[in-house]
Nucleic acid binder design. Structure first.
Length: 495
RNA sequence: GGCGUUAUGGUGUAACUGGUUAACACGUCGCCCUCUCAAGGCGAAGAGUCCGGGUUCGAGCCCCGGUAACGCUACCA
């Protein structure tokens, strides 16, 4: 281990701070892995903090899924909401009082101010700026309100936000450990909202306050945060605090090089677990993203295959390559195959039992087929789609008689959107899907037949919605996505 | 539009502080093995390093200028 990291007297402490807004994300696992390695290599601590400050995007089941997925991968944390620690609470929604206290310091020393505009007013300003081809920025209208103006707004009972008062002149720069000196002119740094009108902090404030209070020494996060780093630095300075080291990692990409997204890739860790990817294989693959490990040099060199232990021993942060790596499922599958083949027959059998043929899964499927078969051997005929990675329905099967391919695919895309946005229960899905049918003038039969064929590959199946629930949201959505992809490719080939 | 980051085969990476013909893996194609399909073995195609200048005996690596992609540009993270 020859990392060029300056050895700091304080123990190394890093953190990941996922938001419970949906399924746990591969990006979280990626950044989590890097943080984990960094901490373990230096005898430091790895903290898990839940950033649940956005009430509008909060998903109740999300936090537990984050815990489960990270544990599944073996990325365990030393401090966190569920295991506690000396600097808790580790859930930001439980720390709102702390932020409110700290923001008073800023208000008192003039580095923050109250701003009384309504969201509508701000939106109007933004539109005008855009129309005038100006950069959309907060216009600073409330930076210097007189006591009378403030009193007037207060008397009106207007809600306010608290904003960071970015200096009018000069610039803020910092040294990224991976990228070197980066600087931003203050002209380009907005007066960021610190406390929203609902009293919750924004990411920026909560993040800085917590990182300081939790003694975080190294902030290892994704590249998308570079632009907001000057705001964070300004905050540290406004508080008079030391600034941690920053490491901005490259962003995982889709095949088309855009930031990895659920539209174009399975990004849910739940999907990878349910599809039978092995934790060491996923970790290994993530470790390949952006380099850091010694590269293979000779023919049939297997240096690309390594365990977490090997990463702890050999991963070099100074070897990370900064171009955004494409998350290539094809190579991940090859790697996973390597791991599967390396298993002993007993271990392989066990892996099968614990995933595709788990008691839990079979128990959920059984009642759906029991009344529909006459011999047990028919189970497979009816339930095959539960055990397949993909089903590819033929056009003759999925295309309703009175519909064109084009409108059918458009409707399938709508199905995807609705299912994605609806709580994954029969009670919620059924009305939502029926409503979509009404809106688009698709009969219930056409509607459900299309969905059935895409998800199960057949025109006859156990109850569709119940089957989808058992099959799982992540994989159901993936089938819809793959269906659309496949059909799009076929259409392109014909052209 | 503004700001920032990045740039090596289709994809992931390699190439010591500038030094042979740009290497390895995935993928693709072919051959072998084989009842089939995988796996495995052997082999092939595929980049002249985003473009243009410059420095140098010599540049993927250094300098200058472009371009493109991506990210940010929210009372989301």
């Amino acid at each position: 281990m020859t990392n060029p990291t300056p050895t700091s007297p304080a123990p190394i402490r890093v953190r990941i701070a996922p938001s419970p807004t949906g399924d746990p994300h591969v990006g979280t696992a990626y950044i989590g892995l890097l943080n984990y390695i960094y901490a373990k290599q230096r005898g430091g601590q790895f903290v898990l903090r839940i950033e649940d400050t956005d009430q509008t995007r909060f998903v109740a089941t999300s936090e537990q899924m984050i815990f489960d997925s990270l544990r599944w991968l073996g990325l365990t944390w030393d401090e966190g909401p569920d295991v506690g620690g000396p600097y808790g609470p580790y859930r930001q929604s439980e720390r709102t009082e702390i932020y409110r206290e700290y923001v008073k310091i800023l208000l008192a020393n003039g580095t923050a101010y109250r701003s009384y505009e309504t969201p509508e007013e701000l939106e109007a300003v933004r539109k005008a700026q855009l129309a005038a081809k100006l950069p959309p920025r907060y216009n600073g209208a409330h930076r210097e309100l007189t006591p009378e103006q403030i009193a007037a707004y207060e008397a009106e009972g207007r809600a306010y936000v608290i904003r960071l008062k970015v200096p009018a002149e000069g610039e803020t720069s910092f040294s990224d450990e991976l990228r070197g000196e980066i600087s931003f002119s203050h002209n380009n740094v907005d007066d960021q909202v610190l406390i929203k009108s609902d009293g919750y902090p924004t990411y920026h404030l909560a993040n800085v306050v917590d990182d300081h209070l939790m003694h975080i020494t190294d902030v290892i996060r994704a590249e998308e945060w570079i632009s907001s780093t000057p705001k964070h630095i300004l905050l540290y300075k406004a508080f008079g605090w030391d600034v941690p080291r920053f490491w901005h990692m490259p962003l995982l990409r889709n095949l088309d090089k855009s930031k990895i997204s659920k539209r174009k890739n399975p990004v849910s860790l739940i999907y990878y677990r349910e599809s039978g990817f092995l934790p060491p294989a996923l970790l290994n693959f993530l470790g390949l993203m952006g380099g850091g490990m010694p590269a293979p040099t000779e023919k049939n060199d297997t240096a690309e295959i390594f365990t977490l232990e090997k990463m702890l021993a050999g991963f070099r942060f100074d070897k990370i390559s900064l171009g955004g790596p494409v998350f290539d499922l094809t190579k991940l599958k090859w790697l996973n195959g390597e791991y599967l083949r390396a298993l002993s027959p007993e271990a392989f059998f066990e892996a099968m039992r614990q995933t595709v043929f788990s008691d839990r899964y079979l128990q959920a499927i059984a009642p759906l087929v029991q009344t529909r078969i006459e011999t047990l051997a028919q189970f497979g005929d009816l339930a095959d789609f539960f055990f397949k990675d993909d089903v590819v329905p033929d056009q003759a099967v999925f295309l309703p008689k009175k519909r064109t391919l084009e409108e059918t695919l458009a409707f399938a895309a709508e199905l995807l959107t609705v299912i994605e946005a609806t709580p994954f229960t029969v009670e919620d899905l059924e009305p939502a899907l029926k409503q979509l049918g009404i809106d688009k003038e698709w009969s219930v039969k056409e509607n459900f037949t299309l969905l059935r064929t895409v998800v199960t590959g057949k025109t006859a199946s156990p109850p569709l919605l119940e089957s989808m629930i058992v099959f799982g949201k992540a994989r159901t959505l993936d089938r819809l996505r793959r269906f659309l992809d496949t059909q799009k490719k076929l259409a392109n080939q014909k052209r």
